[in-house]
Write a protein that binds this DNA or RNA. Structure first.
Ligand SMILES: [Mn+2]
Ligand SMILES: [Mn+2]
Ligand SMILES: [Zn+2]
Ligand SMILES: [Zn+2]
Lengths: 142, 142
DNA sequence: ATTATATATTATAATTATTCTAAACTGTTG
DNA sequence: CAACAGTTTAGAATAATTATAATATATAAT
């Protein structure tokens, strides 16, 4: 359980009590090689499958929002139907597959962050992100 | 009522009956100099203020979606809290003011559309749009 | 270790946004 | 002026999210 210890420290260091539920959610979210995108519903389902114990949906919401506020997750709104979270919290760009509703990270080889030549007076730029919408190459343009 | 005639033709030409409600919504949305962004709720409120007659919320939803499907409106998801529509249906970029939840169109002088160097196999690129999130220039980074 | 305190979890209710339904209404065609 | 399909409407239904308030837990204080 060295991973578990890690998560415990991580949570404590940001002022979050390392509860059983939060540690399990950490496990599901952060005990992986690659970052990924998820919806809260997907996450809740994953948890109830992967783990024998159930976590209340309200707790999943609370925890995801707490993790987001601490900077461990990023929220991404791309589609009015689904609200995504991203375990990759760095600034980055996305493909959005309109056929499958899947989000895919872009590497630097795909697209460079565009330069902003003018800003709005009195405001600070917090992020510049590119979204590329793709779909199957049929002639159904709608 | 020359504008009204115009809207009548526009609707007919796309197979939509020019009903009283649709014409009023056209008036509110398209009888302006500049394009703008709105939420369905804002639109419903605007209508009940600007006009003496009420339009059912379901009709506003129906009409906005019909107009979107006909290409007269564009849907923009940027914020999990609010779902926007845009009367500017061209491909373009946006500032999003995180203080006010306001969307602002970017001109070409602000940012150029980035080049996509690689695409996902078997998929067609439907749009490439940049989102610039801004907020007041205090040191409150959260 | 026991107790006290603040914080977190939970089931459920409440709220909000959106879609569905089915009856009434209206625009268009003949 | 029928007749008909398409449209609007109020209200019900659904879905996503947030609020509530009682219970449980983690940590700090004794
Ligand atoms: Mn929609
Ligand atoms: Mn949220
Ligand atoms: Zn991502
Ligand atoms: Zn716009």
């Amino acid at each position: 359980m060295s991973k578990n210890l890690e998560f415990t420290y991580k949570l404590r260091s940001s002022g979050l009590r390392p509860t059983r539920q939060r540690l399990k959610i950490c496990e599901v979210l952060f005990n992986r090689d690659k970052t990924f995108h998820f919806t809260i519903n997907d996450l809740a389902k994953d948890i109830s499958k992967q783990l024998n114990e159930k976590i209340s949906l309200a707790t999943v919401y609370n925890t995801v929002h707490a993790f987001k506020n601490k900077g461990y997750l990023k929220e991404i709104s791309i589609n009015s139907d689904k609200n995504y979270f991203d375990t990759n919290t760095t600034s980055h760009h996305h493909f959005f597959d309109q056929d499958t509703n899947e989000l895919i990270d872009c590497t630097d080889e795909v697209v460079e962050t565009p330069k902003i030549k003018k800003n709005i007076l009195g405001k600070k730029i917090n992020s510049v992100e590119v979204l590329i919408k793709v779909a199957t190459d049929n002639q159904n343009q709608k």
